[in-house]
Design a protein around this nucleic acid. Structure first.
Length: 767
DNA sequence: AGCACGCCGACT
DNA sequence: GTCGGCGTGCTC
């Protein structure tokens, strides 16, 4: 009976394929191995999922000819078998081909087109050979060992060889009998090369290639000692969480704690507990900025048992980290969203820090949410999932109130620092001496004062400001759709306002519907422009900017933070990424340039994002002795997301937000799937979107699901491609799943190949 | 995805 | 006559 395998191939195929044992091979191939398989006339990469049966349940022969696996690329699996159900679930839930899911999950696997592989880095080291071993084992001084070697070789050692061996013995002792790198000896004795080679030939030394683990930590991170004493709140929270870990059953928790309440120590204790119970731990952070913050804490506590996985690593570093996890050497993984795929086994706790962060959502290819997958991993591993946040997502908090998740609260800041006072500046109501700039006099004066005192300022720019929405210059209202309560988008070319949820349009009225003012205009402020204005206002100040444009590489990011820490920077300007995790004792002023900019987004989550960003930015001040000052500029000081952020009142914000979403049936009262269409020909794209909408309405048009649209996407044209979208909204996740499956089955009939169609399940933003 | 096949327009 | 455009179908 011939062995056959189920193989997920690196091609957009809906199902795995069946292949047989490579010619001439007898041993079975373990699941998780990377192989090369024939597919049509080419060869592609595939992943072995396990044995396959050639007959279907009815006993029928397959209708295809089974081909043999061409090559086993790696004899050791790239991922543990236990994760296969996890990958299958993801493929099904996100409607993504399994082979492509695996390619996303295993970033270092070779691709079908490039055979380039990242390899282990090794170095040549030397260990004692057979001739040297027994004199070493009988102990004695270096001189005695050398004499014994000389004796057993009948005095065949030359002076230079004697010298090289003597240096080797020194290094061996000082290195605690670890293999001695050849390069180390060559540095001390440049001519040692041929001598060492001869010593190897004589059997005195042994040459070994040792794996080198490239150090992703750059310089050694700051050491954080383990605090002897926990706060009462930390104690209480752990009293709930540790027993849950001991029960070894799935249990989701939201750890709701204000900035600076000491959540990190809670995470560390949970991980410690997992390790002492022989389990492993998975810790996710939204982005690299926070990864480097937490890295130092985790590295201090767990050292070599820690692996980090994030986009800031080089391929080589990532390879090493992945393999450390795979071999079981690293038992704690700390990383960004893709670390949710880390090849850990026996996971004892899953932690997601800042769980509300939009950065957990991957916005291209496999559009997964790292936070949601983390919860799923915990479920499959039968362990607790801990979602930490100072501003939990509306959906997670809703689950807490309905008994789906357990809420744990930490209200006190560790050092009892008071939260800073937050001042709102109403941009619409205040006179400005520089109306040409984005700054009010109050903020300019505060910046000047801070600069004079030698303290630092942080300026937060909500870069999501969208230049084509309409803002009232008098009351700050943003024009919204009457049906969807999302902002209308201005289409300059056609001169009309459109809702990108439902597609309805309205003429750009010359008067503000809220206050009747005629002063309406399109708006948008980015961090580059702010930097320019600040340089103009304070030419003598030292200014740095951090945003996704300037932070493509981690070295620059870390260097900028270092410059701020050593007070070589007076003013730091940045976007979201500077809003969290960072704390600088001399940063006494935090300014928010335009707090309500995010409210202009055509997105039902706009208020939630605004609240959490403001709450986070606010937490950045007052970390040192000085409580700090926060100035928030806004056109909408009375909007609940701005007003309640000022008072650090999450519960009130949640209540308001839920009251808005309930009647509109947005999550958590429904699930969404956004179907995106794009293509080079406008007509084809619009037509395909229309046909799909018609198909779904005909098949499923009842009151259990809303099919909204189709409508042009907010960025209708991107890189010459026209984009349309169709939004599905339903209380039934199963119904949405069935609709998407039916749609994909009919895709060929509804949507030509020149139009690409992709599904975004649980969309995070609608752009 | 990638690679075949197949069916219509302007070229040696 | 045929070279080559890209719409469509299939891959164990």
């Amino acid at each position: 009976m011939e062995l056959t395998y189920e193989v997920a191939v690196d091609a957009p195929l809906a199902t795995p394929l069946t292949y047989s044992q490579p010619a001439g091979r007898t041993t079975p191939i373990p699941a998780g191995c990377c192989v090369r398989v024939p597919l049509g006339r080419r060869k592609v990469i595939g992943y072995v999922l396990g044995p396959a049966s050639l007959t279907d349940p009815a006993g029928a022969e397959p209708a295809f000819a089974v081909k043999a696996i061409a090559e086993v690329i790696d004899e050791t699996p790239l991922f543990p078998q236990t994760l296969i159900p996890f990958y299958r679930w993801i493929a099904r839930y996100y409607h993504h081909p399994l082979g492509n899911v695996l390619r996303t999950a295993l970033p270092l696997a070779p691709t079908s087109r490039s055979g380039r592989r990242v390899s282990a880095k090794t170095r040549k080291t030397l260990t004692p050979g057979p001739v040297l071993l027994s004199p070493l084992q009988s102990g004695g001084t270096t001189e005695e060992v050398l004499a014994a070697v000389e004796y057993s070789l009948d005095g065949r050692l030359k002076n230079a060889e004697h010298k090289a061996l003597s240096l080797f013995l020194d290094d061996l002792r000082s290195g605690g009998n670890r293999p001695v790198p050849r390069s180390l000896l060559l540095r001390r004795y440049p001519g040692a090369g041929p001598r060492l080679t001869r010593l190897v030939d004589l059997g005195v030394l042994c040459s070994v290639n040792e794996r080198v683990y490239r150090d992703p930590f750059g310089q050694t991170p700051v050491f954080h000692p383990r605090p002897a004493q926990l706060t009462d709140e930390q104690q209480q929270v752990l009293e709930a969480l540790l027993p849950a870990m001991d029960r070894a059953a799935f249990a989701p928790f939201v750890l709701f704690g204000v900035t600076g309440c000491g959540k990190t120590e809670v995470y560390l204790r949970l991980v410690e507990h997992a390790l002492t119970r022989g389990k492993t731990a998975l810790v996710l952070v939204p982005e690299i900025a926070l990864a480097s913050q937490l890295e130092a804490h985790f590295y201090s506590r767990f050292g070599a048992r820690l692996a980090v996985l994030h986009s800031g690593l080089s391929d080589g570093e990532r390879f090493d980290q992945w393999h450390n996890v795979l071999t079981g050497e690293a038992r704690v993984v700390l990383g960004a969203r893709s670390a949710v795929f880390a090849p850990l086994e026996h996971v004892g706790v899953v932690i997601v820090d800042e769980e509300h962060e939009p950065a957990y959502k991957q916005e291209d290819g496999l559009r997964y949410n790292g936070r949601d997958l983390a919860v799923l991993r915990a479920k499959m591993a039968e362990c607790p999932a801990v979602l930490g946040s100072a501003t939990p997502s509306v959906v997670s908090y809703h689950h807490c109130l309905h008994g789906k998740y357990t809420l744990l609260t930490m209200r006190k800041r560790v050092a009892e620092q008071p939260l800073p006072t937050v001042e709102l500046v109403d941009l619409a109501a205040t006179e400005r001496s520089r109306p040409d700039l984005a700054f009010s006099d109050r903020l300019i004066n505060a910046m000047a004062q801070t600069l004079e005192q030698g303290q630092q300022t942080l300026l937060f720019v909500n870069r999501r400001g969208f230049s084509s929405s309409m803002l009232c210059r008098d009351c700050g209202a943003i024009l919204q759709c009457r049906h969807c309560q999302v902002s209308m988008t201005l289409h300059r070319s056609r001169n009309l306002l459109m809702c990108h949820y439902c597609g309805s349009t309205q003429h750009p009225s010359t008067l503000c519907p809220a206050c009747g003012s005629p002063r309406l205009s399109g708006v948008g402020i980015g961090s580059e422009r702010i930097e320019e204005e600040v340089r103009q206002l304070f030419p003598e100040a030292r200014i740095a900017r951090l945003d996704s444009d300037t932070t493509a590489n981690r070295r620059h990011y870390l260097a900028t933070l270092q410059a701020v820490r050593t007070r070589q920077v007076d003013m730091l300007i940045g976007t979201q990424m500077i809003a969290k995790g960072l704390h600088f004792p001399h940063m006494t002023l935090v300014g928010v340039v335009w707090a309500d900019a995010g409210l202009a987004m055509p997105d039902y989550k706009a208020a939630e994002r605004t609240y959490s960003l403001l709450a986070q930015v606010t937490g950045r001040a007052g970390r040192g002795a000085d409580p700090g000052r926060v100035i928030i500029q806004t056109y909408q000081p009375s909007h609940y997301s701005v007003r309640l952020a000022q008072h650090h009142d999450y519960e009130a914000f949640f209540a308001q937000e839920i009251a808005v979403r309930r009647p509109l049936g947005y999550p958590p009262f429904s699930r969404l799937v956004n179907i995106r269409f794009s293509g080079l020909k406008e007509q084809q794209v619009a037509q395909a979107a229309g046909r799909v909408a018609e198909f779904l309405r005909r098949q499923y048009g009842n009151n259990q699901v809303d099919v909204l649209g189709p409508s042009p996407a907010p960025l209708v044209k991107l890189k010459d491609r026209t984009r349309w979208q169709l939004l599905l909204k339903s209380g039934s996740s199963a119904l949405l799943q069935a609709m998407c499956e039916a749609l994909l089955a009919e895709k060929a009939e509804l949507c030509p190949r020149s139009v690409s169609m992709s599904l975004d399940v649980d969309p995070e933003n609608m752009m």
